[in-house]
Design a protein around this nucleic acid. Structure first.
Length: 427
RNA sequence: GUGGCCGUAGCUCAGUCCGGUUAGAGCGCCAGGUUGUGGCCCUGGAGGUCGGGGGUUCAAGUCCCCUCGGUCACCCCA
């Protein structure tokens, strides 16, 4: 067989690698979210990536997410399973399974999978951060959940975010409203786009947020949810709005806001990044899902939560020129001109003392090592030459951006055994 | 799933319309200038299956077909 170079393998469509420094931004974003959620009493839950297919079917059999976009397959033992397309279903399943004390306030971070055609801000594997609060129908909880997302956007510096708010009413309200919409759109069937006519069959409410121009007229004259709300649902919604106003969180009522998953009841909301001109400008969304726990075999339990898209928040941050990638940083970079043993030992010693340190392998000339030191973002170069080695010393040189005297280089000899203390002091 | 646009060095791109000697630039990388001192500057260098396959031709990065990938929009959604 002739030698032929192996095919260069690459990531799957819609899946990508996140390399530094972008990875550092993501890490920072997720860490900040964990801080925000924890500080409000939410505790982490880590559901599995793979679930019994039925967990997700409960999310809504009429939704594209479930019917067309799921990575599902039959496991070796014949079980029908799926990679999670979102996190709420798994979290509610966990709630039903473990019966924790309520209200169960949890946060999560992790990847989801949807087999869609990728585009800007939409990948087949995408990360979300989110929270769920299960076991209370207090409207103030709706307010807390929304406020927490709002706080988080402020924390990472996003300012051009619009909160879109709506209510879908109680289960029965939603059902009656759905029928009314079906009736109305059915009467205007001829003017609807073909896609809308298909959608109308299985999920009339979804037609309401169609972007197609042909559908606009019929949608504009469609009945609104307001007239179908029960007194209880109206009151709940009023309290949510009142709470948001009290906290100074601006919102826009959007009666067309239906959201893609079938389980939503009462409060629904979405966060739109106004700085993004891309089609995918929703950076997060959520709502109440009273009834979901019941559908998974649990007792009827109210819940509310949101999920925020990590990629889209970062795109929005780019558009607003905020939340930039942190620069590389190290306390010290060890430059060894004596063969490498000193670098090996000093680097190890510094790290053990809690001082961040790196060095160059296959070290090359001093110049090349100094360049590497500069690139590493290190505050100091710890230089070991034959002189220093013989004297039991090292040279500590202050590098760019850490020098007190602008432009002037500063360096001094330090006894080897004083190096750790010296660097700790300079930090 | 449907449609438009695009694949040339690690990155950003020129060259493709009108086929023609060793395929270029900037940035980055490496080395030297500075035999123990980074950044700035100067000089030099390495680095390319021109996405892949097939076809037309004396000759293909350039033309044709297929295919893979990317991107944007629709759909849908974070």
């Amino acid at each position: 067989m002739a030698d032929r170079p192996a095919e260069r393998l690459q990531s799957l469509t819609g899946m990508r690698d996140v390399l530094w420094p972008e990875s550092a931004r993501r890490r920072e974003l997720v860490d900040r979210f964990v801080g925000t959620a924890s500080a409000a009493g939410y505790r982490e839950v880590v559901p599995p990536l793979l679930e019994d297919l039925r967990v997700f079917l409960r999310v809504g059999e009429a939704t594209d997410v479930v019917t067309k976009e799921m990575y599902e397959f039959t496991d070796r033992d014949g079980t029908r399973v799926a990679l999670r397309p979102e996190l709420t279903a798994g979290v509610v399943r966990a709630f039903v399974q473990h019966r924790p004390l309520t209200p169960w306030k949890v946060f999560y971070t992790g990847s989801n999978f949807r087999h869609e055609r990728p585009q800007k801000g939409r990948y087949r594997s995408f990360d979300q951060v989110g929270i769920e609060a299960i076991g209370s129908d207090d409207a103030d909880l709706d307010v807390e959940v929304i406020a927490l997302a709002w706080r988080f956007f402020e924390d990472i510096g996003l300012t051009e975010v619009q909160l879109l708010l709506n209510t879908l009413g109680e289960h029965d309200d939603r059902a009656r409203y759905t029928e009314a919409v079906r009736g109305h759109l059915g009467a205007h069937r001829d003017s609807l786009s073909e896609a809308a006519r298909t959608t109308l069959e299985r999920n009339p409410l979804r037609v309401l947020d169609s972007r197609r121009p042909e559908d606009r007229a019929a949608v504009a004259t469609a009945p609104t949810i307001a007239e179908f709300l029960s007194p209880a649902a109206s009151q709940h919604f009023a309290r949510v709005k009142e709470g948001l106003e009290a906290l100074g969180i601006p919102y826009t009522i959007d009666e067309r806001l239906v959201r893609g998953l079938d389980y939503y009841r009462r409060t629904t909301f979405e966060f739109a990044a106004m700085a993004l001109d891309a089609a995918q400008n929703a950076i997060g969304g959520g709502g109440r899902y009273d009834g979901l726990a019941e559908s998974m075999g649990g007792k009827p339990t109210d819940g509310i939560g949101f999920a925020l898209g990590v990629d889209r928040m970062l795109l929005a941050a780019d558009a607003e020129s905020v939340f930039e990638a942190p620069e590389a940083h190290l306390d010290a970079f060890v430059v060894d001109l004596t063969g490498g043993a000193a670098a090996r030992d000093i680097t190890h010693e510094l790290r053990a003392a809690g001082i961040s340190a790196d060095r160059r392998f296959d070290p090359g000339s001093m110049k090349s090592q100094m360049k590497a030191a500069d690139r590493s973002g290190a505050g100091h170069a710890v230089i070991v030459g034959e002189d220093e080695l013989a004297a039991g010393e090292v040279t500590v040189r202050v590098l760019r951006g850490h020098s007190d005297t602008a432009g002037e280089s500063v360096q001094e000899r330090v006894r080897r055994q004083d190096l750790v203390a010296h660097l700790q002091q300079r930090r």
